[in-house]
Write a protein that binds this DNA or RNA. Structure first.
Lengths: 142, 142
DNA sequence: GTTCTTATTGCAACATGCTGCAATAAGCCA
DNA sequence: TGGCTTATTGCAGCATGTTGCAATAAGAAC
């Protein structure tokens, strides 16, 4: 649990620890894995109905700079946040059945290697959402 | 130029050829390559200021079904349209310098192969935006 | 505890994207 | 041409993101 020392880390940078930020951290801590910003706003409002969206979005930006969350864009382009990104991973999305999976290590490494070898591009896996047809849907279509 | 027979193709499906759709087709025809929906709305409004956003979005959906455009999501999640997608291609985006490139054939094939071999996932390249650091920015950071 | 600086908040407003609904008009048929 | 069916439009309104600005309040200094 890295949330404990967030207040200190903020202050070290001249930033401040506020009631609102605590609410957002609480919501994040109880939402391991993935969350959308909208979900987070809902969770905060459950505690404090006066929560405003702009504050949540701005706090998420700050937390991303601290490395506590990473954002990506789902298949529809909406934001999703990875909480405490232990291992960076991207997502697969099937446009036919709507299924979602994390990208496994093998293809992830292949992707990294493919782009690195061309012009030294360093792919940010955690930001990647790959859209297409999953095996099952592809078979059904064929 | 495949635009010429769009009216006919629409009617074949029981759809209709309207003044508004003509404006959108005109805008697309003069915007080869990539366009955002917002740009398209602007171009249409230059001709006809009464153009509404919802009409443009709905028409783009129809044109996508006809295969005349394909949409993707840029690095910020906003929509971009590929006009007349001759060769399907994805995009690279450098989060440091903001540069954009089309994904070349080699890495594209590597990506297709990597996912196909795992569980038969068929990647939709045209929908893919890969975010990361370009070679130049990666070197500068290191 | 008081004071001061300024990071942060809440508000209002804007941009993009999507949807339900009543009114319009495309395209078919007589 | 006139009438009919229904696809399409425009409108209004919602959801998600973002930004400028004045008011608030964190936290350091006294």
């Amino acid at each position: 649990m890295r949330w404990r020392d967030v207040p200190e880390r903020l202050r070290q940078r001249g930033l401040r620890w506020t009631r609102q930020r605590r609410a957002i951290i609480d919501a994040l801590a109880s939402a391991r894995g993935h969350v959308t910003a909208a979900e987070l706003v809902e969770r905060c409002r459950a505690e404090d109905p006066s929560t405003t969206r702009s504050t949540v979005y701005r706090t998420l930006d700050v937390l991303e700079e601290l490395g506590l969350v990473r954002h990506a864009h789902g298949a529809d382009g909406r934001e999703e946040f990875h909480v405490e990104p232990a291992a960076e991973h991207g997502h697969l999305y099937c446009s036919s059945c709507g299924g979602r999976w994390e990208i496994a290590d093998e293809p992830a490494e292949a992707v990294l290697a493919a782009f690195a070898s061309v012009d030294g591009f360093q792919v940010d896996l955690s930001h990647m959402t790959v859209v297409g047809l999953c095996g099952a849907c592809a078979n059904r279509t064929a």
